[in-house]
Structure formats: structure tokens, C-alpha cells
Design a protein around this nucleic acid. Structure first.
Lengths: 159, 159
DNA sequence: ATAGAAGTTCAAGTAAGCTTGAAGTCAAGC
DNA sequence: GCTTGACTTCAAGCTTACTTGAACTTCTAT
């Protein structure tokens, strides 16, 4: 077993399906070595495993593949993120994670206060919890996802 | 303006697009009143607004429309959840929210410990952070989403 | 030399949660 | 009575992140 890994070995060792690896390659997140002399088969240099670990981790943080691709593009094509890359990223990611946690905390509050009271008012909830879907959490109706509201909520009888 | 709301009014007041409301109705999450005498136009009883608020909130908590439908099915067709429904639900939901928060905290830890050290090892990350994608957080490669691993990670040279 | 495992590409399918478009109906105001 | 806008249904499209299948090639072991 050489320096270069076959796709199935990479899949086995990373825990990511071969089809996903091909997909990542197509999207430019990872790259195989020259295929010369390998009969058109992919051969991945070992550091690809770190790149894959990076991808999986970043997805858990909530980044899309596009965003991850943008980060990986700052590295050499076959390089994996090192210490300094991490210190740069970890600040950003930590911020993102904290935002998500904060959102969840607000939801928990809403569970008792805004909604537990029995009013379950959209107006109130929106006040207590404005625009917090922007982080790409869940899917939901598109208005709430950052589209411009066509009309502000009418100041009407409580519903 | 009567007891019954048109779809566009409901949309405006709930902040949810009319198309989404029709979709919710199709999925059985909400129901219009009899359409007799309204020329086949939908008329929603006022409590639908609370049901919609419920739906939006539940989505933020991370429930799928199927799960939300299951909850709403326990209510009368035009009724909105009241105090007692909430106290039943809030325990469950709070648990879910707490799980997600815990996962995010683990990720934050991984940011410094497991990965910040420079190893960025899949094996280590998996040990520190096992199977935590089950909550439907993010998408990622399917193996990590609860599919059986075809093979345990080989105890090999560190990568 | 040849079976069978593993690899390749490309197109199409999947899932969720909607949105959009086409084609037609209904209703209110002038 | 006619236009305009709101409404209807139904089918198809969109997005993300992959998976699956078909048809074919290549490596590995016997």
C-alpha cells in the first residue's frame, strides 16, 4: 500500500461514501493525484483524509459545501488545513456556533414565555425572535428566510 | 371583515406565503372552513393563525412537517394548541433543543481540542463526537446520518 | 487467460419544503 | 357588463447533497 489511496480505501478510512467523494471532487473540494499509470483510477494523496475530515466537521458547524469550497480554495490543492488555518477559522466558526446556540436559547425561552402563556402570537414571537432564521437553520417558509416581507404585520386584534 | 380570513389575509398576517399555506393544507396541517357560498375560495377560521404560528415555531425547533402534522392531529381540526398542549410539548421540545445545544457545544470543543491540535483526525473526532448527526442537523454524507457503517475505521497510521 | 472485484462516467432519482407558471374561475367596483 | 385582481387547481421546477443504476473498463488473483 503506497502513498496514494484508492477511492474505496479513502471511503473506508474517512467514513464517507465513495459516491460522496466523487461528488466532492466534482465540486472541487478535493482533488485526486495524476491518474497516469493507474488506468484512469483515482488516487488520493494521504492529506485528502484531513481535507475530508475538515469538510465533515465544517458541515456539522453548518457550512454549505459552497462555503467549505471557498475555505479550501485558500489552501494548496492537495494540502490540508494546518494550525494557522485553524486559528483563523475557529474564530469565525465559533461565532457561528454561538449564534446558533443563542437562537436555540431564544426558542427555549419562547417555549415558556411568548408561547407558553397561551397567546402564541406571531407578532409577539417575531418581536422576541426577529429574523433568526438567517443562519440557515431548518427550512420553513421563505419569507422567514430573508426574503423581503411584502407587508409588515398589521397591528391588529390579537390572534 | 368577518370571522373568516381569505388566504391572502392569512398570508399577510402570518407572514407565511399563500403558496405555503396551500401546501400546509394539502399536507393536512391546517384546514379551511366549508367553501360553500364563497365561490370555491378558501376561508380560514381565525384560530388558523395560531396553528400557523405553531407550525413555524415547531420548524424552528427542528421538527419536520410530518412530525408537526402528527402533533396537530391530536387537536380538533380547527383548534389551536392551548395551555395543556403546550405543557405536554414543551418538555419534549426543550429536550430536543437541549440536545442540539449540547451537540454544538461539542463541536466548539472539537474546534480547539480534537482539531485545533493539528491532528484533525477522523478517528479521534468520531470518538469525541459519536453519531451526533442523528438529530437531523445539517445533511452531510449519509453514513454519518445513521446508516450502518460498512466497516469500522481501520486502526492504522494516523492521518 | 480469465473470473470477479473494483473503478469509471453520465444521467437520473431522492428528500424536504416550498415556489412558479399556466390556464381557467370568481367577485367587486365602476 | 366589463375589467381587474384575487382565487382556484395541477404540474413542474428549485435547492442541497448526495445516491443509484446502467453500461463499460481495468486491476488482481488464480
Amino acid at each position: 500500500m503506497s502513498q496514494l489511496l484508492t477511492i474505496s480505501e479513502t471511503a473506508r478510512r474517512s467514513g464517507v461514501a465513495a459516491s460522496a467523494l466523487r461528488y466532492y471532487e466534482e465540486r472541487g473540494l478535493i482533488a485526486a493525484a495524476e491518474r497516469e499509470g493507474a488506468g484512469n483510477h483515482r488516487r488520493y494523496p494521504r492529506p485528502v483524509l484531513r481535507r475530508i475530515a475538515f469538510i465533515v466537521f465544517a458541515q456539522k458547524v453548518g457550512l454549505s459545501l459552497d462555503e467549505i469550497a471557498a475555505e479550501l480554495a485558500k489552501l494548496p490543492p492537495h494540502g490540508a488545513p494546518g494550525r494557522k488555518d485553524w486559528s483563523r477559522l475557529s474564530a469565525t466558526w465559533r461565532g457561528r456556533i454561538d449564534e446558533r446556540i443563542a437562537e436555540l436559547e431564544r426558542l427555549k425561552e419562547g417555549l415558556t414565555e411568548c408561547i407558553g402563556c397561551g397567546c402564541l402570537s406571531l407578532d409577539r414571537c417575531r418581536l422576541a425572535n426577529p429574523d433568526d432564521r438567517a443562519a440557515g437553520f431548518g427550512s420553513g417558509p421563505r419569507y422567514w428566510l430573508g426574503d423581503p416581507r411584502p407587508d409588515p404585520p398589521a397591528p391588529s386584534a390579537k390572534d
